[in-house]
């Protein structure tokens, strides 16, 4: 049995999850990463995607997050998400709305930097839509 650590998923509205987890897969901006107990301290930004939490008992919970960042310490992993929902409760119309908004933003973007940033965000969103 692998060691467990405390995983917290926090959205601005409330503390969503606080439980002992064995393994958490995070959609980091620089690529997915798996966090296990005794991980080296890392701080990373999160792209829109799915967080997978494997708890002590082996059940796997999946949450959809829209951006944010994670603070990883050896015993705790705190994920501050801009907005987060359990994968079963995802609101598809909301997701579609976000994609549409981002598409509009992309059309309005002024400089290249911004354009790249928004395009990237849009691609994350569409991948996410395909995944759920």
């Amino acid at each position: 049995m692998a060691d467990s650590f405390n995983f917290e998923l926090v959205s601005p509205e409330r503390l969503l999850v606080s439980e002992a987890a064995v393994e958490v897969v995070l959609p980091g901006t620089d690529g997915e990463m798996t966090v296990m107990a005794h991980h080296a301290p890392v701080m990373t930004t999160i792209k829109p995607g799915i967080v997978e939490v494997r708890t002590d008992s082996g059940t796997i919970n999946r949450y959809v997050v829209f951006g944010g960042f994670a603070d990883i310490l050896p015993e705790v992993c705190t994920l501050l998400a801009e907005s987060a929902v359990h994968v079963d409760d995802i609101d598809r119309t909301d997701l579609a709305q976000r994609i549409q908004n981002t598409t509009e933003d992309l059309a309005d973007a002024k400089d290249e930097m911004e354009k790249t940033r928004i395009a990237e965000y849009l691609s994350h969103l569409t991948t996410l839509q395909a995944a759920v």
């Binding site: 601005p12 980091g28 620089d30 080296a40 301290p41 890392v42 701080m43 990373t44 930004t45 801009e82």
Partner: peptide
């Protein structure tokens, strides 16, 4: 808290901070 120097940052500290500060303002307003 842990000393900041032991942290690894992904992508890097400055860009995380750049991402974080606007969000922090939203949180303060919230």
């Amino acid at each position: 808290e842990l000393d900041a120097s032991v942290y690894d940052y992904e992508p890097d500290a400055a860009s995380i901070l750049g991402d974080l500060l606007p969000r922090n303002i939203a949180v303060q307003i919230f």
